[in-house]
Amino acid sequence: MKHLLEVKHLYVDLPLPAGMLHAVRDVSFHLDMGETLSLVGESGCGKSITALALMNILPPKAIRRAEILRFEDTDLLRLPDEQMASLRGAKMAMIFQEPMTSLDPCYTIGNQLVEAILEHQRISKQEARGRAVYLLDKVGITGADSRLKQYPHQLSGGLRQRIMIAMGLMCGPSLIIADEPTTALDVTIQAQILELLASLQREFNMGMILITHDLGVVARVADRLAIMYCGQVVETGPTADVFSKPIHPYTRGLLDCIPVPGKTRPGDKLGSIPGIVPTPIGDLFGCSFRNRCSQATADCIQDVDLLELSPGRAFRCLDRPEACRPEGLEVRT
């Protein structure tokens, strides 16, 4: 079966004054219709850059290369810029982290909602407006007619993020990339927005890439996840599997950092990963996590390939799964 999106051996390099930043190194994944894949990792692990690379809106100097970068039947690697632009916003939509600044302060919501569809489809302004009203209603914004005339500064962060979502859906995309869509929102709104994204994704049967550093978010909505560290995928698999039987020491460390309802008692110490994330500049070799890893051995200076444990379940560590903790963490959603 053909995947909605297939990425094989994606690399993104950014030339910086300090040297070449290897922001994304050998990232591979695929996504099917109606499926949610979560890219998880700390700030600067390359998850957002991966998304920008898919949309081809990387910073001007960034260098992108890959073996396969295919969306539906289109080879994105060989697609001319103009055709890529007509794919962006039409078939692939993206929602960003900062709803407060992601809308143009100079134009009304209505103007910004219809602008993409007027660019991509032969449709009258009236029809476009009708679609905008329909989608505002879908994302739970009441009084859509009057909202269309408002400016971004008149709306709260939660409302703006709903508008960003509606904007992404205007052209009926088959892929939606949500880059930390709830990070900038307060906790009560976060849950609503996630719920909304998940239900819209089901309703329109879209593939969704959810980028986040919040494992709670992943547990709620993702079918599969890929843990990223220092530009590489260190572990990937179905969400429940990874949560219950984490293999990579980094994944285990991450899971130790979050309290588990019923298990973590008041006064218990949560885990933490010692050290800081290294910046992937210059020539890199070996496991990127070795300096912070409690199980690291002398062998860890060798380069490590992604090792497939079973179809769709892989990790990047010399340490074999026997070392994985016998008692896995429970997944609560």
């Binding site: 809106i57 632009a85 916003g89 993409a116």
Partner: peptide
């Protein structure tokens, strides 16, 4: 960045 992601000219 949003405008670019929308595929505008």
């Amino acid at each position: 960045r949003t405008a670019k992601a929308k595929g505008l000219r």
